[in-house]
Design a protein around this nucleic acid. Sequence first.
DNA 1: TATTGTTATACTCTATAACTATA
DNA 2: TATAGTTATAGAGTATAACAATA
Lengths: 160, 160
Amino acid sequence: MADDAGGRPAAAQRQMMRPFERSLPMALLRAREAVMRGFRQQLREYGLNEQEWRIMRALMEVDRVEIGELAECVFILKPSAIRTIKNLESRGIVSRTRSSADQRRAFIALTARGRKLFEELAPHSEEEYARITKLIGSADMQELYELLRRVTDQLNGSKA
Amino acid sequence: MADDAGGRPAAAQRQMMRPFERSLPMALLRAREAVMRGFRQQLREYGLNEQEWRIMRALMEVDRVEIGELAECVFILKPSAIRTIKNLESRGIVSRTRSSADQRRAFIALTARGRKLFEELAPHSEEEYARITKLIGSADMQELYELLRRVTDQLNGSKA
DNA sequence: TATTGTTATACTCTATAACTATA
DNA sequence: TATAGTTATAGAGTATAACAATA
């Protein structure tokens, strides 16, 4: 069977293929997958997917926000965001109110129930965060945040 | 119009909503989006999407690999990977050969044409990389890679 | 005429489950 | 029986375009 590696059990047990070590997007994706893996399971137990959670987290910090801005900041296209919000609305998690100053605009906000759901999930998220901080150290965690922020800001700034 | 902010131009021109500053997954996603934005356009001009590029990059470094392992390492589910590979195969970018030692297994590899396509795109990728390195500095770039690698490895290792 | 939200459409990926064939 | 690949299916996101109401 030579280098065909026939009969090897599972890829995970061997030293896995680890491609494009020098690809920053891939390194970011890989890290994100590693971080999210645990939490995604928790989300599903609460009937939420990743996008819905992103929207909830965003709403948690701003009280209310227009749909377009919300969509942009959580990296979901407007049509998807509208559908997701409609879905969350039907479950009583978010509310939608029309701006009185400009009837075109709609504001989205978490309902009391949405906030409660968030509070139930947040500890799991915090736990994950604490676990990672413990694994790599608090100083390095800060450093990582700082570097990510710099890359993001510099790229977004130097793009016009 | 008060805090309704009626008549404001585009969200981007104002100080945008910047939610969950302390969410690591979001920071990773945001950075990834910033990094990929420029390159995604290039990909599309070559008729490739992100997943197809990920697969090509992975294949570029290993000669050939089984479908399951490939799918796992680029974070694409097997059914999606199979369809994508089938698509790439129909465009002559990858080839598929059956393992002689174990007829169940199939090996995927880049064709000469696939490799050529990669070589055409790689400079754009390198350019982006150089640009980022210049923006945040070579040392910090190294540091960022290192931190991402540690987070990933620690989480994956400490998970069993 | 420009903008916000909305709907429509086609395509793709996600997520599961079942199926085939090899082992 | 277990495994690698494959197909099937339902759901959701991506990406565009067009449309409505409002400004």
